[in-house]
Design a protein around this nucleic acid. Structure first.
Length: 284
DNA sequence: CGCAGGCCCTGGTAGC
DNA sequence: TGCTACCAGGGCCTGC
């Protein structure tokens, strides 16, 4: 599942292949893939034809391609989205949703998405920062991310710490996998109330979030072919470096207790029962 | 306004 | 074998 490290890997992979190139025709193969582009597929293709891509940028799990027109193509990979660079003669993928051709020929850029949770849109005037993602917080790898503001904001919330980590308006880029990994590293159960966490604990958690994201970016960057910008969450480093996610009933790397799986927010959470004790019920 | 929960979507797999 | 049920889960939307 693409979270910040996977999206950053895609960003880096795309940068070397699309920056400076001029779009020719754009083909929308499935309207749901551009459902956030309210003017529709015909407008989407028309406003992009002939434009030059000048950068590839990212905030959290969002990517955008600033154009010479001042607009930008903004995209989210959802759960199964991929941006692939392919020669024109490569057969269409089963779930090909959008195709970008370039005036200089190969490779073309393809948006492929099995489950169509992801999507693309053109953001008018969005080259610097698309208005569509202005509500998304800076991510912890952003040099302008404010640690002190984050720690204060978390402690003002009245919710559970895992919910806060997944709230993209508070901190972006973290999904279910890296939330579980960072909580394990910190020794916190995901249901710990945010307003009862000491500032020093939130600070430690943030440091672990950064560490696990950075490590994953490093490993992700080496496991992908330059021409095939893969965001398949099952591949690459995932299996090797995760300590809790997907490891139900396997021993904790730190203490040997068997990793447990709990249902949380209608999805699975993995944690160590010894390193990450559940909070005692407290009267609030 | 802050927070919780439902919904969208489809391929793979477990179970009968 | 073939069918059904369930699971993966980020972000948007609604309701309290």
């Amino acid at each position: 599942m693409p979270e910040l490290p996977e999206v950053e890997t895609v960003r880096q992979g795309l940068a070397g292949w699309v920056i400076g190139r001029r779009l020719d025709t754009v083909e929308v193969r499935h309207p749901r893939a551009i459902r956030r582009h309210l003017p529709g597929p015909v407008h989407f293709a028309a406003v992009l034809a002939g434009r030059q891509i000048i950068d590839v940028r990212r905030r959290g799990k969002y990517l955008w391609l600033p154009l010479d027109s001042g607009d930008a193509v903004v995209g989210h990979l959802g759960m199964s989205g991929q941006l692939l660079l392919q020669p024109a003669h490569a057969p269409d993928e089963t779930h090909l949703r959008v195709r970008f051709r370039f005036v200089d020929g190969d490779p073309q850029l393809r948006f492929v998405d099995q489950r169509t949770f992801g999507g693309l849109a053109v953001s008018a005037g969005g080259a610097e920062l698309p208005a569509e993602i202005a509500h998304i917080a800076r991510d912890p790898l952003d040099p302008d991310f404010s640690d002190t503001a984050f720690v204060a904001a978390v402690r003002r919330r009245r919710t559970e710490i895992k919910r806060a980590l997944l709230d993209q308006s508070l901190i972006s880029g973290i999904g279910n996998i890296y939330a579980d990994e960072a909580l394990w590293r910190t020794g916190l159960h995901g249901t710990r109330p945010t307003d009862r966490l000491p500032a020093a604990t939130v600070t430690r958690l943030l440091a672990h979030v950064r560490d696990v994201l950075r490590a994953a970016v490093t490993e992700g960057g080496t496991s992908f072919d330059a021409l095939y910008v893969n965001v398949n969450g099952e591949s690459g480093y995932f299996d090797r470096s995760l300590n809790v996610y997907g490891r139900e009933d396997q021993p904790c790397a730190r203490c040997g207790a068997l990793i447990r799986r709990e249902s949380f927010m209608n999805r699975s959470s993995f944690s160590c029962p010894r390193c990450q004790p559940r909070p005692r019920a407290v009267r609030r």
